[in-house]
Design a protein around this nucleic acid. Structure first.
Length: 994
RNA sequence: GCUCGGGUGGUGGAACUGGUAGACACGCAGGACUUAAAAUCCUGUUCCCGUUAAAGGAGUGCGGGUUCGAUUCCCGCCCCGAGUACCA
């Protein structure tokens, strides 16, 4: 029988499901290997060919590892809480759970068709209560913990209370809010319960606090920093504004240093690690305090203690440049601005603040060129040389970073330089290597200091240390590490998410009792915020205890459920009934994820939060590894190839027309002067104000030629309303006309050749999306070529990590390869026929070449090259008409990770028990079979390869050299001369210099 | 602007640590089989010159360098992609 992929694939998929072939055990004598994919959000659009790319790669690896004798965990699930289902619910009233359920069914069907070796018995869904019970449980652990900076780990909040009772909080080094009160043990004990709770909240790892948040009015919710891109929401692209709100946050900043250090321990792509480093944004520098110069009469001393002069603290990474400071700039929002403004500057300052306020976040970001600012009228004193330095405000200083104030060193910093030049402030060079600092800033650290008091003559390293020491001695500053990363906002004013397991008593948050978990998402009549602006959960009516307490109404963000899910997979279905998120023995066995595959778009979201929660769980001794994902690979995105046509904007009476003779475009009236929808082919026009480029469905195009009749049909157009123009013809009222060679489209003569003309579309590579009509569905591909072909083709397309456009053209080649492979086992009439003879040297050579190649390639995730090697091997075996059982059986095993269905079938036909992965072993490589009698020997003369010799292996080096030199062709190139130099590498002459 | 990737035939892409550049596949051209088409198989396919065949020359974005030898290493530049951005 010919290669019947449909029959084979459906039968084996059924077999795998019925026999639970891929079910993983939590106990094994084999070494463990955990292969994880980033689980998908089940969207309504289903999978396109780009989605499974990473899943196919991980599946190949998982199957390969099983053949190599590992106990492999390879699970799959769904990140099923999320915005699209909720927005669909708002529009249609359908409960998001129902939509989600339907979408999951589609995903499951599509995934099953591809033949993945997932252990579906361990499936998780973040939206199912028995899962989010543990998401809520982890939240409660965070609430009940604080971060001890001395032990550098999270600890139960009870230990903090003990410390407070014993010694107050003076000596405690903890990650906390900035505005903690300072109290002694006695004061603590004297606090009321409410006061105690308020103070503790400032230390908890998840806390409620008034903070500036990204508020998206259109979505009716707050968003985390990583969910905002350029002032717009990542999902939906709605404007986002800054707003102060009471919000749940996660104290991820406590882990900043560990998150940074941990990156050095893991095998992740460098760009991704770099993104996390930038996000964490550690900068090492110093805090310097500049005393405000008291001016009698117009200046108010600091409010807290009027006897002490006010100080402006700045953060800098270059304290060594402190002698070059010629001004200090505050953010317009800085709290001291009001106090520092002198009466005669009040008007200017207020005007500036006003103007800065009006500027949206976006304008402010876009406009980095223009310099603006205003002088407060006050001065500060440089602590090291007592210079009087003017204090300005400017919006290039951000209130949210560092102290919201900077020292201006125009000779070393480009922005400071621009500012100084614009406002005519002095510029002082501080290093002997700086030249022309009046013209341009020079941020060098080279050279020796000048104009810099006691550090004159020092180098950068000495100067930095000396300045910090001096500042510390004077009490005017200290070394300081600053992080850019902020705490993560955790609450969302949405319905379709995990409820926060909190109620309020006397205005303070209390955890619900653990026995009440899961706190199930209540039913609501509508999924919109209430009329008074409260989140949708305020509509819940039959919530448990609703009358006793006030519940927290926000839900958790999308990343909550995905920040620990890999541990849930470790629990078998049976173990999930137990009262733990994953059994301890399972965690001890599986430990961490050995290989994680997914997109790089999660760099600063999911992957950072997961590392954070993992470290926290490690601190509580609930898990064993500091880092959750040992190795990570980012699969590239598969883009779509869109087809586009130029189209008139609305109906028009004028047509762009290309005159071939003078190669000009002219604008001429339609044949009858009426208005038409006009379509231009790619070669017939250019984009002008009156045309637009619009996508046409790729299903209506073949090799960039549009099927006009299908297009008319699908979009319900009328031939009588529409003109199609190609390079040399025109479709007018359903009739093709040749363009008159003279110039215009008139006179219209029906063309002599009435056949369809080619109407070319313009191809462009874009992201695959429904709205661009360029989605290629894996179902279609599987229907036509089968899953094995799709799997291999997706790998063959190019390196896994690279983004590339989907191109169906090459898929035939892979399909042909599988047919050829099938035919190796069959005679010309497609009867199964293999023979039991001993393999020949040539056959063994082909086999062992491919064993080695596949091993090497899979181990370094170069799946594309191993597909090529399969093709070579099968071509070789076809050439020598190999039908030997021992060879072919090994070939089946080697190929099975890539094309599992056909391999299972052949495995069985070869007389083995079904279920290749249950007991097949990856064949052992034996280098002996690759040894040859003679080897092809390239010889270069003067670096250019000139000739190729076959040298028998049994010669020693001297004999080889003699043979090479005696060779006719070599003699010819040497032209009678003796080589001046003979280069020998590994006993081989590779090059001769004449 | 900064950081990180990357530039190789008509196309997707090979070349693991410097050692025969262009594997493998698509496409294209020619041929076989066929009444014909499809399918299949065979041959050729970097470019230039030449041609019965050979032989020769150039060639991995551009310019330079190190080396017996560079797609690979170093310096300078150009272009494309991704991330990030008054972060002091």
């Amino acid at each position: 029988m010919d290669y019947q992929f449909k029959k084979i694939e459906s039968e084996w998929q059924q077999f795998w499901a019925e026999n639970q072939t891929f079910k993983a055990e939590n106990h094994s004598s084999k070494p463990k290997y955990y292969v994880l994919d980033m689980f998908p959000y089940p969207s309504g659009a289903g999978l396109h060919v780009g989605h499974p790319l990473g899943y196919i790669a991980s599946d190949i690896f998982a199957r390969y590892k099983r053949l190599k004798g590992f106990n492999v965990l390879h699970p799959m699930g769904y990140d099923s809480f999320g915005l699209p289902a909720e927005q669909y619910a708002i529009q249609t009233g359908q409960h998001p759970a129902i939509t989600t359920e339907q979408n999951i069914a589609t995903y499951r069907r599509q995934l099953d068709q591809i033949g993945f070796s997932f252990d579906w018995s361990r499936e998780v869904r973040t939206s199912s209560p028995d899962y989010y019970k543990w998401t809520q449980w982890i939240f409660m652990q965070l609430f009940n913990s604080w971060y001890n900076l001395e032990t550098d780990k999270a600890e139960p909040i009870s230990t903090l209370i003990q410390k407070f009772e014993a010694e107050g909080n003076h000596a405690i080094k903890a990650a906390s809010d900035e505005d903690v009160l300072s109290f002694s043990a006695e004061e603590w004990i004297a606090f009321s319960n409410i006061e105690k709770q308020e103070q503790l909240l400032k230390y908890r790892l998840t806390y409620l606090r008034e903070s500036t948040v990204n508020w998206c009015a259109a979505l009716g919710t707050v968003l985390a920093n990583d969910e905002v891109k350029d002032g717009f929401s990542e999902r939906g692209g709605y404007p986002v504004e800054q707003k102060k709100m009471m919000q749940w946050s996660m104290r991820i900043t406590a882990y900043a240093e560990r998150l940074l250090q941990g990156l050095d321990m893991i095998d992740w792509p460098e760009p991704l690690k770099e993104m996390q480093r930038n996000w964490i944004g550690k900068s090492v520098g110093a805090m310097v305090e500049f005393e405000v110069e008291p001016v009698v009469g117009n200046f108010k001393l600091s409010q807290d203690s009027p006897l002490e002069p006010a100080k402006i603290a700045v953060f800098t990474t270059r304290v060594d440049t402190i002698f070059g400071v010629t001004f200090v700039v505050l953010a317009p929002e800085h709290e001291l601005v009001k106090d520092l403004t002198t009466p005669d500057q009040r008007e200017a300052i207020e005007a500036y603040i006003d103007q800065a306020k009006k500027k949206s976040e976006l304008d402010r970001m876009a406009d980095t060129k223009t310099v603006s600012g205003a002088f407060t009228g006050s001065y500060v004193v440089n602590p090291l040389n007592n210079d009087k330095i003017p204090v300005w405000i400017a919006d290039y200083v951000l209130a949210g970073y560092g102290t919201g104030a900077v020292m201006g060193v125009p000779s070393g910093d480009a922005r400071d330089h621009r500012f100084a030049t614009h406002f005519n402030l002095p510029i002082v060079a501080i290093l002997d290597t700086q030249k022309e600092v009046v013209k341009e800033a020079d941020a060098t650290k080279e050279g020796h200091y000048i104009n810099s008091g006691f550090i004159n003559g020092m180098n950068y390293k000495e100067a930095t240390a000396t300045v910090i020491a001096k500042l510390e001695e004077m009490g005017a500053g200290k070394a300081k590490v600053n992080f850019r990363m902020r705490d993560a906002i955790f609450g969302r004013q949405r319905y379709w998410g995990e409820p926060v397991p909190v109620y309020f008593k006397e205005g303070l948050p209390q955890l619900i009792d653990e026995s009440e978990l899961p706190l199930v998402l209540p039913e609501v009549d509508k999924y919109l915020p209430t009329e008074s602006g409260e989140p949708p959960l305020a509509r819940a009516e039959n919530w448990k205890y609703q009358n006793e307490f006030e519940y927290e109404l926000s839900t958790m963000p999308g990343w909550a459920g995905s920040s620990w899910y890999w541990y849930r997979y470790m629990a078998t279905k049976e173990e999930r009934a137990e009262n733990v998120f994953a059994p301890r023995e399972a965690i001890d066995y599986w430990k961490d994820v050995d290989l994680y595959i997914g997109g790089s778009e999660h760099a600063t979201g999911h992957l950072l939060y997961s590392r954070f929660w993992n470290k926290f769980l490690k601190d509580l001794d609930l898990v064993v590894e500091e880092e959750p994902f040992k190795k990570l690979i980012n699969q590239g995105m598969i883009q779509g190839v869109s087809e586009k046509v130029f189209r008139s904007i609305g109906k028009t009476k004028m047509i762009w027309y290309h005159n071939e003779h003078n190669n000009r475009y002219s604008y001429i009236p339609t044949p009858d002067g009426n208005a038409y929808n006009v379509y231009y082919s790619e070669d017939a026009t250019f984009q002008s104000d009156s045309t637009q480029l619009s996508n046409v469905p790729i299903s209506l195009c073949n090799k960039s030629i549009l099927d006009i009749s299908k297009y008319i049909e699908q979009f319900d157009l009328d031939y009588n309303d529409t003109i199609f123009i190609t390079k040399d013809a025109c479709l007018f009222k359903g009739q093709w006309y040749d363009q008159s060679s003279e110039s215009e489209l008139v006179p219209y003569k029906p063309s002599s050749n009435q056949q369809q003309r080619d109407f070319y579309t313009k191809s462009e590579v874009e992201k695959m999306s429904k709205s661009k009509w360029n989605v290629v569905n894996p179902d279609e591909m599987i229907e036509r070529y089968g899953a094995d072909t799709l799997r291999m083709y997706e790998m063959f397309l190019g390196p896994l990590e690279q983004s590339k456009p989907w191109n169906t053209n090459g898929i035939e080649g892979v399909f042909k390869f599988l047919r050829k492979f099938w035919k190796l086992f069959h005679d010309d009439a497609f009867n199964f026929r293999v023979i039991n003879e001993a393999p020949t040297k040539a056959e063994l050579k082909s086999l062992h070449k491919i064993i080695k190649k596949v091993e090497d390639d899979v181990e370094r995730f170069s799946f594309n090259t191993s597909v090529s090697s399969f093709m070579i091997a099968v071509n070789e075996l076809t050439e020598i008409k190999c039908a030997k059982r021992s060879i072919l059986q090994d070939m089946v095993v080697i190929l099975s990770p890539y094309a599992p269905h056909i391999c299972e079938e052949l495995w069985k036909l070869l007389g083995n028990e079904a279920g290749i992965l249950s007991y097949a072993e990856f064949p052992k490589f034996n280098p002996e079979f690759l040894v040859e009698d003679a080897f092809s020997y390239p010889i270069s003369i003067n670096g250019k390869t000139k000739t190729n010799l076959n040298i028998p292996l049994d010669l020693d080096q001297k004999e080889v050299e003699a043979m090479v030199l005696a060779d006719e062709s070599v003699q010819k190139y040497l032209a009678g001369q003796q080589p001046k130099k003979v280069i020998v590498v590994k006993g081989r002459i590779v090059n001769m210099v004449v």
